[in-house]
Design a protein around this nucleic acid. Structure first.
Lengths: 145, 145
DNA sequence: CTGAGTGCAAACAGTTTGCATTACT
DNA sequence: AGTAATGCAAACTGTTTGCACTCAG
């Protein structure tokens, strides 16, 4: 992820601008998220931080993720197996979607412009105001096939 | 749902063909699902059954839903707020997707042919074998706007 | 100094599992 | 008769909350 520093800085600044005080736990969470290139769970985040010597209480991780989600700095994504995954959300709105392997549980990312266009066109047709979307594909990954 | 009886019968027959014995709890779950036109949670299912005088233990409901899911008779869908929703899956493969209101939590269904085509084309391009997909839109419903 | 931020442990909600009982086949 | 299906209650898992303590502003 070429934009690692960019997102981290953007996130920290957005937090400050929104009036949040700076604290160690939240900053660690932000920095760890900035290093990711795809989604991860709260536990995975906790494990990474602990392994990196920056142990953060799980409650603080959830609280940080909640705030980041409200500020639209992270995107919550639900692979559908009872765990929520989180990933940094680019301010540009650029994003990808996920495909999950039914056998090994692996989660991969993909992008597709035509899909985005279809969703935009659909959103215009609906009486709702649509501001986000998730497309989760499921199937079998090449390794499990 | 014009296909209520059809789906219920299809499901009961598929269960029998798969070698499952017929039992009251599972049959009640199947019949209740056959009456739905959109997704509902295990608890909602339990409440409906209880209100209809057919009380079924929550464990049996989950076990029935698990079996039905394996047989591809129900589709699990995750609105992303910590509860799994289930809905009957048509043998034809015909299906719809969902849009969730951020404010009131309402879940509505929609269909879009162009979206399906985009996903089919995308699936062909990927090295994975894709057999299901979910598209969840989020935003604000007309009532909350 | 004051209150936001943090961590721990307890509380919670949804789901799953162990086990004794019931009832298809 | 034998075994799958069921229901209850206990166990589990991921997430949230209450509360005392710390630290940024």
């Amino acid at each position: 992820m070429a934009t690692t520093a960019t997102w981290t800085d953007h996130a920290l600044r957005t937090l400050e601008d929104a009036g949040y005080r700076s604290g160690a736990a939240r900053a660690h969470v932000v920095r760890a998220l900035g290093r990711q290139d795809c989604c991860l769970t709260a536990r995975e985040l906790a494990d990474q931080l602990r392994d990196g010597g920056d142990e953060v209480g799980i409650a603080s991780i959830y609280r940080a993720l909640e705030v980041l989600g409200e500020l639209r700095l992270v995107h919550r994504m639900d692979a559908g197996e009872g765990v929520v995954r989180y990933e940094p959300a680019m301010p540009s709105g650029e994003h990808h979607h996920h495909i999950v392997c039914d056998h090994c549980g692996q989660v991969a990312a993909y992008e597709d412009e035509r899909l985005e266009q279809a969703i935009d066109a659909l959103a215009d047709r609906l009486a709702w105001s649509v501001d986000r979307h998730d497309v989760v594909l499921r199937g079998t990954c090449p390794a499990c096939a």
